[in-house]
Design a binder for these strands. Structure first.
Lengths: 211, 211
DNA sequence: AAAAAATTTAAACACCTGTTTAATACAAAT
DNA sequence: ATTTGTATTAAACAGGTGTTTAAATTTTTT
């Protein structure tokens, strides 16, 4: 009945809502805007989702699942050298993020404005993530024992990469519109980002190097 | 007439608005909430600020100035060793940010939802910032030529530190409520942050080390 | 084909939104 | 003391908000 990505009315509404929530936030999105975007009567939105809060929660949960499942697979799956995987991961993460800045901003802003949201998420994918992280930790430990990298925890590893890659994308508008970009000699954000990806890789290389 | 931080009615309204905008965002804040918090009639808010948009702009500009002026002084002013200044800067920045997460989230979210805001800011403090950055660049160049650090631009330098320090604080709620924190063996966020500050310093040390 | 159930609609509900008006209280100036 | 201008208020405004109702349409079942 309520499985997504079908051409059903419910899916149409959910997709419209998803875009609007990401762009305008919870308060900035109205039921009538959702209805209009989905080309549907307002009452129908309530018919399927019962309330704006329920609709939002439904959209939010889906977005969050996509967000937390994405990414770290690359680091464990293939059998490249670790540093090549890091490079690929930086590339993929920055591409994904600059394609849809709305998503991380949405998640950060809405979880801040309404911390209770996180409690409803449930930890259904937690187990899968735990396994992936354990795998990655094993890789990091093995590389360390082989004398290739310093000792490092998955937590620090993923926090470092995520911070370095995502934060500059979050502040894109501030950086570009304040002229910071130009001050550092870049014509546009993409040009800066291409440079920055190399810098992030270099930072991670330097940090990982055994001491 | 309109100078802040006096005990005037206008200042009272502005402070109430400032807190509410930071916590609830532009759309989430209403004129009546502002009036109530400032213990003042609704019409008075419009009497002093003419409209909600004008009030918001006024608050936003002040917040942004505080945001962009803060911080990088430490790196240029004193005559400590560079690495000690970096350590102190990490400490100060992370303390400021965790004291008021609302501010960076507010800035990121509102500039994203309304990019036009940045155009109204004006670049009045741009010159002062430019000078500070030129000073810092000179320090970095000198240290490089003395063989103490690798060649690095102010842009990369400040982007790296800011990303590493601020991003984990932005995602505090997500990190704590998803159990990530516990998964990495920390009891609470402050404990993690204390550990993370050391890691950031270590990352910066590794990256700065001459090659 | 008739009945039942699910879908969709227009219209209304009560409430909240930013803003304005016109009247009042208060201060300063004459 | 009276005028003048500022500060403050309660009340109203037109329009937007989430949600509900009751009727109409379509689909499914019998």
């Amino acid at each position: 009945m309520s499985d997504s990505s079908h051409d059903t009315t419910e899916a149409k509404i959910k997709e419209a809502a998803s875009e609007l929530f990401a762009t305008l936030g919870l308060k900035g999105t109205t039921m009538r805007k959702v209805a209009e975007k989905a080309d549907v009567n307002v009452a129908l939105v309530n018919y399927y989702f019962r309330s704006k809060d329920k609709l939002f929660l439904s959209v939010f949960q889906e977005k969050f699942r996509k967000y937390s499942s994405q990414g770290f697979d690359i680091l464990t799956s293939q059998s490249k050298a670790l540093i090549d995987k890091v490079e690929e991961f930086i590339e993929i993460l920055s591409t994904q993020m600059s394609k849809d800045v709305a998503l991380p901003i949405f998640l950060i802003a809405e979880t801040y404005h309404n911390p209770g949201l996180m409690e409803c998420i449930g930890t259904e994918s937690a187990e899968s993530n735990m396994r992936k992280k354990a795998d990655l930790q094993k890789i990091l430990d093995d590389e360390h024992e082989a004398g290739n990298i310093r000792k490092i925890s998955v937590g620090d590893f993923e926090t470092a990469i995520a911070s370095l890659v995502v934060f500059p994308i979050l502040t894109k508008i501030i950086t570009t519109k304040t002229g910071k970009m130009a001050a550092y000699g870049f014509d546009n954000f993409d040009q800066f980002l291409n440079h920055w990806k190399k810098t992030v890789l270099e930072i991670m290389k330097s940090y990982l190097r055994p001491i």
